[in-house]
Design a protein around this nucleic acid. Structure first.
Lengths: 237, 237
DNA sequence: CGCCCCTTTGAACATTTTCAACGAACGTGG
DNA sequence: CCACGTTCGTTGAAAATGTTCAAAGGGGCG
């Protein structure tokens, strides 16, 4: 287990104020079914920003000033172990929400770090609280988000925490593939932290899948996956 | 992994209608800060019932007709794997809530089974939905419950899914001890399903802790724990 | 070009799983 | 009341799996 804590330099760029009304992922986003009048209640700015790989959206223990909607890229939620190691407890993708606890005024339980370049909307806690008092819609949405978070957490435990290293890696790829059987992957250390195995074991498993032709590395960490074969592995040993 | 699915005969006894106003665990329960007028909105009966070990509160896929407040005992939330095995994704104790998703009208994601004799209040979905429309209090409470569920899920992953078998078992005991260093334990098969290890490995780990004097078995599956020594083990190997 | 970081690989070692067997506790039915 | 079958916890021994420590190769960046 890696005892060193990575320094993640602030590396986020402000992209401008978000136009929620015209948001491309609005139907899947937190503000899914807000009405026009709801939007008029927002007076604090919702910033749209990019976050570079390795940079953090927020750190555990930070003042919970905002929550984040992921509009693109991949975010890891990290929890640090008493012995200094770390474990990734969830991966967030387009449409997911990071830092939901901020809406309750609770401290952040994780550190959220971009794995791939991330585009995100930063929604101040005050906006959420204001809206959630005024409109049922948002309340519903928030509840659904929580529900989703629990489901994800359970899936993480069951799918990625059970079975042999090979099977776990196979399942990880299956959770990441797009509609064309391709997927962006990431560093072996993070793979290990997701699956609860060492970096070396993760590397061996990925390397072997490549050798066996279940994965074809188009370019560094971009894979063409043999989805059917992976699925067979996922259940087996 | 055990391929057989246990038959859990219905074995719940009705204890009468609950008196929420005078509930002993009310400050920690779902209805924590309902006002007198809120209670008047309840017209459906909230049943108080006991559930015998091995019996289910509800099964995955059941019509989500109610949620359950655990007033005593120990409940496991089980998810079944594609290969027929099972994994326990959470343990619920006094004050916890099972089947929260019913409040959203979502299907149950788990099967909830009593490990120790359980005393529970069954709250019909309609009651929750009615109250949650009428009163902010309950909305808040529900949100907090979800938050709690996510925290539990993360803790399960990080604390019970990381480290050697011995360390995991030690941490499991630490999550179960009461104020006097005693704790009720449960079957090795369930221990394995919680920790993601085999029944035999679970048995070996517990047996060794007994031999080393970190655990003293007062009577079958009732232990006096050397909390400090367990804590040392929990971080180490 | 040289340095650094990441991935990969090897080999010895540790842990866990698997398969098998035994004994105690329990409840049933004779 | 006792014999029997069952379940559960335990243990042994061999095999499989994962970890650890160490080192080599590759690619990108200054």
């Amino acid at each position: 287990m890696d005892m060193s804590v990575k320094k993640t330099g602030i590396n986020a760029a402000w992209r401008g104020l978000a136009n929620c009304r015209g948001c491309g992922i609005r139907e899947s986003a937190l503000f899914a079914d807000l009405t026009e009048s709801d939007f008029n209640l927002i007076h604090l700015p919702i910033d749209e920003m990019t976050v570079a790989p390795g940079a953090a959206l927020y750190h555990v223990g930070d003042e919970p000033a905002a929550l984040y909607t992921v509009r693109g890229g991949l975010v890891k939620l990290v929890q640090y172990l008493p012995n200094g190691g770390q474990r990734i407890v969830r991966l967030l993708r387009t449409g997911d929400t990071a830092g939901l606890e901020a809406a309750l005024g609770e401290p952040y339980r994780h550190t959220a770090i971009a794995i791939h370049p991330v585009l995100t909307c930063r929604i101040p806690r005050a906006v959420i609280q204001r809206l959630s008092e005024e409109t049922q819609h948002l309340h519903q949405q928030l509840m659904r988000r929580w529900h989703q978070a629990v489901e994800r957490a359970d899936a993480f435990l069951v799918e990625l925490g059970t079975g042999s290293a090979r099977a776990r890696v196979a399942r990880l790829f299956l959770t990441l593939v797009d509609g064309h059987g391709e997927c962006d992957f990431f560093g072996r250390e993070d793979v290990g932290a997701v699956l609860g195995i060492t970096t070396e074991t993760a590397s061996r498993a990925v390397a072997e899948l490549k050798r066996q032709g279940l994965l074809n590395e188009l370019r560094p960490n971009r894979f063409q996956c043999n989805v059917d074969a992976l699925r067979a592995l996922a259940d087996g040993p």
